[in-house]
């Protein structure tokens, strides 16, 4: 395989990992915990996209044969699926995170409650639409060709879109975090929730904002991956979620550029694994994470936390 092809494959997969890790990082920076339901929200985003472009449910599940009475073009369906996923993420926050925060419980518990929420979501999907895989037809992209030549390599349009949309979302998010009132409020809460509250920032609203945004990113990523490789069943988000977790720590918890950098590194490293050793591909990202943590215990771009005595 030639270099350009490896580069494109690696960057487009890495962009998805990055989007995933961004969602984790938004929640982590305001709450200091990891949302294990994130992978399930990503999966839901893919199913929402499939339904919104007019796809019908298969023969299994309670909703067998169901289809929406309208069919949107992919461009309309993707943001709507993101919004749907954001609503689900808000619901997850409401049932699995807020009660713990209100009781000032050990943050470790949120790992378990969010896992419970994820288990419920994944099995709800299975109950409703069955465990079969769904493919989003590539025709959903309208008049765009399936692939195009670039510097002597053939690039699938979907891959280019994945990369472009991820980078766009990242740029918008960074600008918004730095420039807008809410974005800075979010950062203030991430720095110190209590002080932010004293300064008149509604930290509960900021937490909700973080969950909504992370759900939106996950939903969009799910829709894009669904288009790129088809939806392999209710569990298909879990592998990406796990990889996203490794990427998150690799880049440094709570760091937005770190999440993207980590995603691109892991994506590229995986793309470099030759086809005959593809069984080892999954170990590359984790091995990389392991090595980086040994040298830099806070990840590539993570800030060292001061030790409180």
């Amino acid at each position: 395989m030639d270099l350009i092809q490896i580069l494109v494959n690696g960057l487009s997969v890495g962009a998805v990992y990055g989007l995933f890790a961004l969602g984790y990082t938004l929640v982590f920076s305001v709450l200091g915990v990891i949302n294990f339901a994130h992978g399930a929200v990503f999966t839901l985003g893919a199913y929402f996209t499939y339904l919104l472009i007019g796809g019908a449910v298969g023969a299994n599940g309670l909703l067998a044969g169901f289809a929406l009475p309208f069919a949107l073009p992919f461009w309309g369906a993707l943001p709507l699926a993101g919004l749907g996923a954001a609503l689900v993420a808000l619901l997850v926050e409401r049932v699995a995170f807020r009660p713990l925060r209100r009781r000032r419980a050990d943050p470790l518990l949120a790992l378990i409650t969010s896992l419970g929420a994820g288990v419920i979501l994944v099995n709800l999907i299975q109950l409703l639409v069955g465990a079969e895989s769904y493919a989003i037809p590539t025709g959903a992209l309208g008049g765009l060709p399936a692939s195009f030549p670039l510097l002597g390599a053939r690039v699938r349009t979907v891959q280019a879109l994945l990369l472009a949309i991820s980078l766009l979302l990242l740029a918008v998010l960074s600008l918004w975090l730095e420039g807008s009132r809410n974005g800075r409020g979010l950062q203030a809460v991430a720095e110190d929730a209590e002080t932010a509250q004293l300064l008149g920032i509604d930290s509960t609203a900021m937490v909700r904002l973080a969950f909504g945004l992370s759900g939106f990113l996950a939903g969009v990523a799910g829709g894009l991956v669904g288009l790129s490789v088809s939806i392999a069943g209710p569990y298909f988000g879990i592998g990406y979620g796990l990889k996203g977790l490794a990427v998150l720590v690799l880049g440094g918890l709570g760091s937005v550029p770190g999440a993207v950098l980590g995603g691109l590194i892991v994506g590229l490293a995986e793309a470099c694994v030759p086809a005959e050793a593809s069984g080892w591909k999954d170990a590359v990202g984790y091995g990389f994470l392991f090595l980086v943590l040994l040298v830099r215990p806070r990840g590539l771009l993570g800030r060292p936390l001061p030790t409180k005595v």
């Binding site: 049932v95 699995a96 713990l100 378990i112 409650t113 896992l115 419970g116 994820g118 419920i120 099995n123």
Partner: peptide, 9 residues
């Protein structure tokens, strides 16, 4: 899942 979610609460 509901048991795991509600137990810690």
């Amino acid at each position: 899942g509901a048991v795991i979610l509600l137990g810690p609460l």
